[in-house]
Every structure is written in C-alpha cells, then in structure tokens.
Write a protein that binds this DNA or RNA. Structure first.
Length: 107
DNA sequence: AGGGTGACTGCTA
DNA sequence: GTAGCAGCCACCC
C-alpha cells in the first residue's frame, strides 16, 4: 500500500487543494485545467488515492452536480458523509443529492 | 507487453 | 425523463 502518486495525480490534488471553501468543481473542469481531455482519469486519481483531509476531494462532483463517489465507493454512507461535509462548507444540496446552489460551482 | 477497469461525459433510443 | 452505448485518458493487474 501507500503507492506513490504519479505526476498526473499530484497535479489533480494540487488543483483540488486550490478550491476555496464553500466551492465545488466538476471532474470535467478539472480535466480541462489539467489539460486532460478525459475526466475519468481525474476520477481514477482520486479513487486510487484516498488522500482524504490532505485533498478535499469531496469538493469534486460530476457534470450532473452530484456526488459520484467517495472513498472508492459510488454509493453508501461514504457518499452521504461527503454530502454532509459539503453542507458544512456552505454548499447547499437538495434531497436529490444535487448541488442546490450552482453559485458554489467553481468554473 | 498487453488487456481491463473506472469517483466521467455526451449522445441517442 | 429514464435507459443504454460509445469515447476518452490514466492507472492497475
């Protein structure tokens, strides 16, 4: 375990860490920032690297403005907790688990 | 060295 | 509005 993150992954984390509190971003926007045409690669970086508090990966959502997954799980308490974290940051979500306030979306 | 997967996205039925 | 298929890049086995 504890495999070393690649340059690409580090870049992803760096971009996420730069996200201000109360704001969220999408995988696509991140991919564009990293000059990577594939958002899936970004998701891979997070899935294979649960950096948790070091990187607020919970501020990263998909194009549907919904939580894609957390801690390597696409559903379950992990995702729910992630939603709660965002709520604590000031990001409002609706009963559907979608971003209720698009103003929090960082572009 | 090669194949398969995925915390995605967009389009079509 | 919901469901299914194809495309995309990077990582893992």
């Amino acid at each position: 375990m504890n495999r070393q993150p690649t340059a690409f992954e580090q870049r992803v984390y760096d971009a996420i860490v730069q996200i201000p509190k109360g704001k969220v971003t999408t995988y696509k926007a991140l991919a564009e920032k990293l000059n990577c045409g594939s958002s899936q690669a970004v998701g891979q970086a997070l899935k294979r690297n649960p950096n948790a508090p070091e990187v607020p990966c919970h501020r990263v959502i998909n194009s549907q403005l919904k939580i894609a997954g957390y801690m390597g799980k696409t559903e379950g308490d992990a995702v729910t907790r992630k939603l709660d974290l965002l709520a604590a940051e000031g990001v409002e979500f609706d009963a559907q688990g979608k971003l209720s306030n698009p103003a929090c979306l960082l572009v």
